[in-house]
């Protein structure tokens, strides 16, 4: 079972928690400055450091050479948040080290030599941080990692220097979206050094009321403080979102029940559906499940569908390339089966 097929704490609102740590080898230029041969050498050293650490790790992690993979497989990894869109384009020396349940993925030779990413279902930032830190320590023991006494961990872009850490949560906030309060919340978060983006990273729309909230500041704030700050913000956000939902339901029970059940009806009976519409309807269903209006659907199912209805992941599941119409039909069928 993959990590996203489970549901963690506060799972009806917090889909996942993620911590990313960037590390670079001191004696090599950053990836954008590497020749193909040196890029391969960097990748080999990182892979070797991981695989030589223990037999367990060697069993647990697969090493995927991006240039050797089919495009569908690479795009599917983007849809599952294992790698960035930019990284999926491939290039010599670009590898992903990923564990079996896909909860840890390490991009080698993206913007930095290695970006360790740990993901957990639900609200579990401390655990994600611990997972990522364990691997960062391993690399620090085995490799000469760039570190500056004033500026912290060396990273290609100074926006990451210091801790090299990006902690983020993926949250479902339909109440804040429906009432229009979301704009002010996003603005307030921006002012205190946190960014809010849509489901698929930079510049992506918040389809299905799903947002990624992450820290922007990496210098002058410790890792623990960053995690604690984000946790505090999530707790506040959860309270507000739950409060608004309750109030919306108290004031307009029929409107809300209608909306949720319509979404269920569409997904249960549609014969073709786009990924965008699927995410919208899944959002309403998630709201219904959270409010106890739909009782026979599990949050785990919704998590699996939310990450599973992307075009590439769908084609992988079906096992062959498909045109848009065929995909929409396959998507509708997959969702029908799950509900």
């Amino acid at each position: 079972m993959n990590w996203y097929e489970g549901a963690g704490p506060e799972g009806d609102i917090v889909l996942s928690s993620r911590v990313r740590l960037a590390r670079n080898l001191k004696e090599f230029p950053f990836p954008h400055k590497l020749s193909p041969a040196t890029a391969r050498e960097v990748a080999d050293r990182i892979e070797e450091a991981l695989f030589s650490a223990s037999a367990n790790l060697k069993r647990e992690f697969a090493s995927l050479e991006m240039d050797a993979m089919e495009e569908t497989d690479r795009v599917s990894m983007v849809e599952k948040h294992l790698i960035s869109k930019e990284f999926a384009a491939g290039g010599t020396g670009r590898r992903t080290l990923v564990n079996r349940d896909e909860s840890i993925s390490m991009m080698v030779n993206e913007e930095d030599h290695v970006r360790i990413q740990a993901m957990r279902a639900g609200f579990a930032l401390d655990e994600s941080y611990a997972d990522a830190l364990r691997l960062a320590r391993l690399f620090e023991e085995k490799l000469d990692i760039g570190f500056h006494p004033q500026f912290g961990y060396g990273t290609a872009c100074p926006t990451n220097t210091g801790t090299g850490m990006r902690a983020s949560v993926m949250v479902h906030l339909p109440g804040l979206v429906m009432t229009g309060y979301i704009a002010a919340v996003v603005e307030s978060l921006r002012k205190i050094g946190f960014t809010v983006r849509g489901l698929y990273g930079e510049n992506s729309e918040a389809t299905g009321a799903i947002f990624q909230v992450s820290n922007q500041i990496t210098l002058g704030v410790s890792e623990e403080e960053t995690v604690a700050d984000l946790k505090r913000l999530v707790v506040q956000g959860l309270e507000q979102e739950r409060g608004i939902r309750k109030e919306l339901y108290r004031l307009q029970p029929l409107t809300l029940e209608d909306r949720v059940n319509r979404a269920y009806g569409i997904l249960k009976y549609a014969r073709k559906i786009s990924s965008e519409e699927a995410l919208q309807q899944l959002s309403d269903i998630r709201l219904g499940v959270s409010l106890g209006l739909l009782r026979n659907i599990r949050v785990e199912t919704l998590n699996r569908l939310t990450l599973g209805v992307g075009p590439a992941t769908l084609q992988k599941t079906v096992g062959r390339p498909m045109g848009p119409d065929e995909r929409d039909a396959a998507r509708a069928a997959t969702i029908r089966d799950c509900l």
Partner: peptide, 14 residues
Amino acid sequence: VIRRIQAGETHVGR
């Protein structure tokens, strides 16, 4: 540059 994009000038973490 760092002042524009970061909160501090000195690393305080691990």
